[in-house]
Nucleic acid binder design. Structure first.
Length: 235
DNA sequence: AAAGAGACCAACCGCGAGTGG
DNA sequence: GCCACTCGCGGTTGGTCTCTT
């Protein structure tokens, strides 16, 4: 059957959100509440698809989000929860106050998986790497070069995919040749507007509730993890 | 100074689950 | 039970930045 993507409509904005769009969305949700994402853009006067609005709200505009760096405690909690739940980012985010699944997913992919790999721990299984580990190619990574791809080897996308493949192999094998240690550099690198920086600092200083105060229900999580394992994609 | 490599993250895409008619 | 639809999730991509050579 195949359903057309919700963003397929011609004339809808895509890509980065403008401050104006953010404001419009925030005001609308503050007035009308979340939900009815499909109708929201139309009602709010936004040239976006509902999906995009939902994502923007959940990942960026919600007032209960922390905007600062992920603390060491949060990091440990993520590792712990990932060990129990696997890549169920929304479930993990549900146990992390003020963090979104997207944020945790990004943090995992860019920091934690490497960190574990550097420690000789398989980030997927959370067990030490075995000696005869064989590198599996990425699920849908580019196959061997054909002429059309070859002709575009200079393209940005191609270069990037090559880089990513290389990057992944270093993660998987734990043989990263990075010159600098993995750091909190991201915070410096991230483009932040002044308001963002300010709110980041504020949330770091005041509203950052230690994750140790949270009390994840381990039994519940474990049973959930078992249940989820049954339908694990890895089969 | 320029080019290449690597890091980060916002946003997109496709799919499955859930739900109501 | 089937179909059409919405919502939410996880994987992936692309833009932009810094660092290294």
């Amino acid at each position: 059957m195949g359903r057309a993507p919700c963003c397929a409509k011609v004339g809808l904005n895509r890509g980065r959100w403008t401050a104006q769009e953010d404001e419009t969305l925030t005001k609308y949700i503050q007035t009308h509440g979340e939900g009815s994402w499909r109708d929201l853009p139309k009602n709010a006067g936004l040239l976006r698809c509902g999906k995009s609005c939902r994502l923007r709200w959940i990942n960026y505009l919600r007032s209960d989000l922390k905007r600062g760096n992920i603390s060491e405690e949060e990091e440990q909690l993520i590792i712990k929860l990932h060990g129990l739940l696997g890549n169920r980012w929304s479930l993990i985010a549900g146990r992390m106050q003020g963090r979104t699944d997207n944020e945790i997913k990004n943090f995992w992919n860019t920091h934690l998986s490497r960190k574990l790999a550097d420690r000789g721990i398989n980030p997927v299984t959370h067990k030490p790497f075995c000696c005869n580990f064989s590198l599996q190619p990425k699920k849908d990574s580019k196959p061997e070069l054909n002429s059309s791809i070859e002709s575009s080897t200079s393209s940005r996308a191609y270069k990037k995919s090559q880089r990513n493949m290389k990057k992944q192999s270093t993660v998987m094998t734990g043989t990263c040749k990075r010159k600098k240690p993995w750091t909190e550099k991201g915070a410096l690198m991230k483009k932040m507007d002044p308001m963002e920086k300010l709110s980041s600092r504020i949330s770091d200083q005041s509203s950052c509730k230690p994750s140790s105060e949270m009390n994840p229900d381990e039994d519940k999580l474990k049973s959930q993890a078992q249940k989820l394992q049954c339908c694990s994609r890895e089969g």
